[in-house]
Amino acid sequence: MLNVIELMLYKAYADLKAEASRYYASILWWLVEPVIYMVAFYVVFGIVFKRGGPGFIPFLLCGLIVWKWFAGSVNQGSNAIIMHLGLIRQIRLEKIILPGAALLNNCFHFFCAFSMYLVFLTIYGYKPSLSWIFLVPLIAIQFLLNSACGCLLSVIVPFVPDIRQLIEKLLMLGFFMSGIFFDINTISGSYRNFFLMNPMARIIDGYRSILLHDKAPHWGPFLFIALLSICLIWAAQRLLKKFDRLYPKVMY
């Protein structure tokens, strides 16, 4: 168990290091990339289109950055095992290490981007407040959700590679359905309940209520998301163990 975590961490570290040493500015890119990302949206929506009033840019960027973490985790987590078929054909390896390292890697990228976003917020005029402390449990819950999705998909994708196509389309759909460009609270009636079935819509809304409205979200649904995610991660780990000696035989 300890060995598994140690290896997962080292793999994540090695991947990050490899990523960084590919470029001269290395680590700087992790901070610059989200800044460019934010500036691009700022220019398009804040200066060119002048949409949504003064609060729109922080509102939009919050959704984008949080979504990007989720989408990245799902994508890389689901590809984790088939990307390493060569490795697992040569040695016996706890398969959970592969999606696990990909998830940690994405987690790190998110922290870089999110800290840049917090810097942006303070520059934009939002004062850091004590309620930002609620971000800690919320980030933890999103990490659980990301992990649940990433790990479960990593179980299935090697057997049915077509699912990757499906994931791509569903992420595109999710991008528009998770309230990144609009506030799900402004939707009326039964439609709203439909949108709220999407856990990412709730999570994005949670970040906004903490950062932009200075108040804690309702934790009930998040507790449910966290518990469900833990169950799914457990199930994924059981399945990875069950199929442990099948993955090396996958032809891809």
């Binding site: 793999k11 090695a14 590919r22």
Partner: peptide, 14 residues
């Protein structure tokens, strides 16, 4: 892109 030392550590852990 990793150093010989880091590769040795990672490889050994695998």
């Amino acid at each position: 892109h990793l150093s010989g030392r880091e590769n040795a550590i990672f490889s050994g852990m695998l």
